[in-house]
């Protein structure tokens, strides 16, 4: 039996496989296809203080090995989540981690304070990397001082495990990672999507209503992997790796590069059962390699 437990801050996750925010709804959307209790964590759809309609359609474009999205944090607000959605999903035997967003530091604080009061919510993922909103979002995550300021402000009002989700759209992601670590983050998750665009040559117009959107999928995997590896060597807190993971081999690469846990995002759209397959693949790999604890894989990249 392989021990699949991993630790992120005060959390003990039953396995390293989680689902990336924005790709898995509130978990319920996948309940017909899989046993949600098997997941290590579900990072649920991004929340804001108030209801947000998100961006106009079209919000997505397919690329040859990935996709662009420009959803723009459509959600019904944190209060609706706490009173209507949380009661429906809290019984799942997995760590449900809300993803916190804001246009201002005050909004991040408001959302966090409310979630801090909810019994059973043991962690949040602070999203300072959404590329699809006009105000806030990625703006906080692309400058070190603002990333630090929002992390510090949220840290002050949140007693539980604080994960900060980083943007790859920066010159040096390790600086931001170090900055949020200094401000008390318990872990970082990376990477969010890459700012990108698509053009329809027939109409000569951008495909997305917002012109630019976030690129995800296998197209970004090698860059995400490099960033996880760099960040792992720059900080002491755990790294949660994501970016184009489609199968167990991809997941193992992220763990070897330094990820303690991983998130599966775009792959859920193609195979709603992919997380279970990745979990099985991780177990098989550990068995083949005589690894008794999966946490022993983290950062075990050998020298060239």
């Amino acid at each position: 039996m392989v021990d699949l437990n991993v630790h992120i801050g005060d959390l003990q996750l039953k396995n390293p496989v989680g689902t990336a925010s924005g790709t898995f709804g509130f978990g319920e959307e996948y309940a017909d296809f899989m046993d949600l209790n098997k997941l290590g964590a579900i990072y649920v759809k991004g929340l804001t203080a108030k209801h947000r309609e998100g961006n106009p359609y079209p919000r997505m474009a397919e690329t040859s090995s990935g996709m662009l999205n420009a959803v723009g944090l459509q959600n019904k607000g944190v209060d609706y989540f706490i009173s209507n959605i949380w009661p429906r999903i809290k019984h799942y035997d997995t760590e449900i981690i809300p993803n916190v967003n804001g246009s201002t530091v005050e909004e991040y604080i408001e959302v966090t304070e409310k979630l801090n009061e909810v019994e059973g919510i043991n962690a949040i993922e602070l999203n300072i990397s959404c590329p699809n909103v006009k105000e806030g979002g990625m703006a906080f995550g692309v400058s070190c001082p603002s990333a630090m300021a929002v992390t510090e402000a949220v840290r002050n009002v949140f007693d539980k495990t604080l994960i900060v989700k980083l943007s790859p759209n920066v010159t040096d992601i390790t600086e931001i990672a170090k900055g949020v670590e200094d401000m008390g983050a318990d872990a970082v998750s990376l990477v969010n999507t890459f700012l990108a665009m698509a053009i329809d040559v027939k109409t000569r117009r951008p495909v997305l209503s917002t012109v630019t959107g976030g690129l995800s999928g296998p197209a970004i995997k090698p860059i995400a992997l490099r960033m996880v590896w760099q960040v792992y060597h720059a900080i002491k807190i755990p790294v949660i790796g994501m970016g184009g993971i489609m199968n167990a081999t991809d997941a193992i690469e992220f763990m070897l590069a330094g990820a303690t846990a991983i998130q599966i995002g775009t792959a859920n759209f193609i195979d709603p059962q992919v997380t279970l397959k990745i979990m099985d693949g991780l177990v098989s790999y550990c068995e083949e390699q005589n690894i008794s604890k999966i946490s022993d894989l983290t950062g075990q990249l050998r020298n060239i």
Binding site: G22, E29, Y57, M60, A61, N69, V71, T266, F269
Partner: peptide
Amino acid sequence: ENMMACGIGACLCCVTE
């Protein structure tokens, strides 16, 4: 028939107003 990614209600890409 809006463009869709997941088809199962998770990604919010296919919305209509």
